[in-house]
Design a binder for these strands. Structure first.
Length: 646
RNA sequence: GCCGGCGUAGCUCAGUGGCAGAGCAGCUGAUUCGUAAUCAGCAGGUCGCGGGUUCAAAUCCCAUCGCCGGCUCCA
């Protein structure tokens, strides 16, 4: 091929001979014409600007703003544009970093005065103006030392700090409308491509995420390839607000908090307590079925024991302590200690293993005040906690059984899930052999189940590797609930042993695991997942008896009594209100069934159930209705839960 | 813990230095009604708590508790 031509291969496999030095956009247009909405490209696997020139044979792929990577580029450019707008309004602001994130982008600024809501509106207007100007993004490369001088002159000390830590001799800068930023790129061809954006909030954030550093002001925003995408996202936010468990907890009268009692302490009202009761009895039965034994440990344990376990050294700032009769006690933040004491209460043989101890253990952790969040982050909570003490050989099977347990339970609640294996962190204890064995047990168990997983390199606990299960709710949000953790440290520290076949003492392995995680957090997630409209098996009130007029009150009371006897969680609305009013109230309370009682029902001795979705069921006897509800519950729980809460 | 915002009736909220308000819920009465709000009347507040400024504070200032959005940390 002549020296002034190159061969370009396109995504669809087509090839063209083009002049050397042609721009990426020129090459793309030669193949597919203009106006395809490309904002950047991948050339030989590398993301580049459309203005990049091609000097060698290449494979290229045009990227549009609606694709995953393209959207990220759009948002990243949006953050640059926002920074330009901020610098225009606040010239003294120093810029830090401004990446694209999952649902948008942000940029951190160091300013004397924090931004206000009004500032946000002004900045938004500034962005709109820059967009209308269609300013080109220019890339230029510079020696690192030169770039340091450049940003020093401009007083951008954060950029200088970043540059000093880079090892590359050359760095790239991007400029649009006089705003220059240190950046790898790529970026939009010009600012006019930012068509749908919105600034969402402003918040403090530590420089480089370290709480010892200065707090910067972070502006969050989002951007989409078109107005429709933005609208959908704003609708998603609205839907999330509508489902907020804190709002629904109040509306459905499930739980509350009060500063009189203290931050992070849940008060369960009757319906919330009923929900928990249902979850707990479900859990107890499921654990017993799987060979777990239920135990109950004390809340206060002597501080000396927490010293031995290592909690006093590593976890003290999160613990509550109390002293009585000159004896110091720690309030348990975890349940494992009592379980180990139970293990040690007698000599154990390999025949006793695996020992699976389950406790609905209520723990207290002094979480920092700023992290508390409804039911999702509290200071007193109850874990569905179990510790499995087994031989190293049994580990694989035990892990696999726990995974099955998690999958079955998540299926019943209707959650999808992702699994992640977290491996040995830098700061850790235990022998390589132990880590190797435990990690391969975790991986082997997951792979044996054919479950896809990701690896969190170095994300494990200091005492062992773990599997984290992140469940995905109805809005596709992810929540960390279940976790399975291997531990070699505590068996060592507490000198747990078992007598093997060989008559010798051996060291067992301990698995810490939770299925739902914490009852509080799981309940919060459940509320949002179902938007408060719990399936009948979980609904704290399954049916409400409503009369058309006072004339049917006596009959309604006998129906109510009968259904309650049969185990249906039923309420009676005997108020002197119109039927429509009572129906509305029951709908708002998201009660699955409304049993309408009018003269027709009294005459027939039956009830007319109306379902929450508005469907009208056939008239039936109370007994038939109870059987109907029981059947629905059993079906939803794969035969595990019928009527009644035990 | 840190940055910012907020705290008024059971709930949702209005009130920005001069007599504390609305809707819903509650109570009383009327109404006896067929699938998402019947009508009328009544009652309800130490304006989170504690200090201060002022003739006068829900309103301004300080401190504190709590909540909200983030950061950091986590089930």
């Amino acid at each position: 091929m002549s020296s002034d031509k190159i061969q370009v291969t396109f995504e669809d496999g087509r090839q063209s001979i083009l002049p050397r030095g042609i721009s990426v956009s020129g090459a793309l247009e030669s193949a597919a014409g203009s106006g395809n909405g490309w904002i950047a490209a991948r050339v030989n696997g590398k993301l580049v600007d459309l203005a990049t020139t091609l000097e060698e044979d290449a494979t290229i792929e045009g990227l549009t703003a609606d694709s995953g990577v393209g959207l990220e580029i759009l948002r990243h450019s949006a953050s640059h544009i926002m920074a330009q707008a901020v610098k225009g309004l606040f010239p003294e602001a120093k810029v830090a970093i401004g990446p694209a994130i999952e649902n948008g982008f942000y940029y951190d600024f160091d300013v004397d005065r924090p931004f206000t809501e009004e500032d946000l509106a002004r900045i938004e207007a500034g962005i709109a103006k820059i967009v209308s100007q269609r300013l080109a993004f220019h890339r230029r490369e510079m020696a690192r030392e030169e770039a340091i001088k450049f940003f020093e002159q401009r007083g951008e000390t954060y950029k200088v700090e970043l540059l000093r830590e880079l090892s590359e001799p050359k760095v790239s800068l991007y400029e649009q409308g006089g705003f220059v930023d240190l950046c790898r790129g790529p970026h939009l061809p010009h600012t006019g491509h930012l068509k749908a954006f919105k600034l969402t909030s402003v918040a403090g954030a530590y420089w480089r995420g370290d709480e010892r550093n200065r707090m910067l002001q972070r502006i969050y925003g989002t951007a989409f390839s078109d107005a429709k995408g933005l609208k959908q996202y704003l609708h998603f936010l609205e839907e999330a607000r509508r489902r907020d468990h804190r709002r629904l907890g109040k509306e459905l009268d499930l739980f509350s908090f009060t500063d009189e009692i203290g931050a992070g302490m849940v008060i369960y009202h009757p319906k919330g307590a009923m929900l928990r009761q249902i979850l707990e009895s479900f859990e107890k039965r499921e654990h017993l079925r799987r060979g777990y034994q239920i135990v109950i440990g004390p809340t206060l344990l002597k501080t000396d024991l927490w010293k031995r376990s290592g909690h006093f050294d590593h976890y003290r700032e999160n613990m509550y302590f109390t002293e009585i009769d000159e004896q110091s006690y720690g309030i348990k933040p975890m349940n494992c200690l009592a379980h180990m004491i139970i293990y040690k209460s007698k000599l154990r043989s390999y025949r006793d293993l695996p020992l699976r101890l389950f406790e609905l253990g209520t723990v207290h952790r002094h979480e920092k005040s700023g992290v508390l969040h409804g039911l999702l982050r509290v200071r007193q909570f109850t874990q569905d906690d179990a510790h499995i003490i087994c031989t190293p050989e049994q580990l694989h099977q035990e892990i696999q059984d726990i995974i099955d347990f998690v999958i079955e339970v998540m299926g019943i609640f209707g959650f999808a899930y992702d699994m992640e294996i977290s491996t040995r962190p830098e700061k850790s204890i235990g022998s390589d052999e132990d880590w190797e064995r435990a990690t391969s047990a975790l991986i082997g168990a997951i792979e044996g189940k054919g479950i896809p997983y990701t690896i969190g390199e170095g994300e494990g606990a200091f005492y062992g590797p773990k599997i984290d299960v992140k469940l995905r709710d109805a809005l596709d949000r992810r929540w960390q609930c279940a976790t399975i953790q291997c531990d070699f440290t505590l068996p060592e520290r507490f000198d747990l042993t078992y007598v093997g076949v060989d008559g010798e003492r051996h060291r067992p392995v301990m698995v810490h695991r939770v299925i739902l995680g914490a009852m509080e957090r799981f309940l919060g997630v459940l509320i949002e997942h179902f938007a408060g409209a719990f399936p009948t098996w979980l609904a704290p009130v399954q049916a409400v008896v409503v009369t058309v007029s006072d004339g049917q009150l006596e009959f309604a009371r006998t129906i109510f009594d009968q259904l309650r006897d049969l185990g249906v969680r039923v309420e009676l609305d005997d108020r002197n209100e119109k039927l429509g009013y009572k129906i509305r109230e029951a709908q708002v309370q998201k009660i699955p069934y409304m049993l309408v009682i009018g003269d027709r029902e009294v005459a027939a001795g039956q009830v007319s159930p109306r379902r929450r979705d508005g469907a009208q069921l056939e008239m039936m006897s109370p007994r038939e209705f109870a059987a109907f509800v029981a059947e629905e519950c059993l079906e939803a729980t794969r035969g595990k839960v019928g009527l009644g809460i035990t």
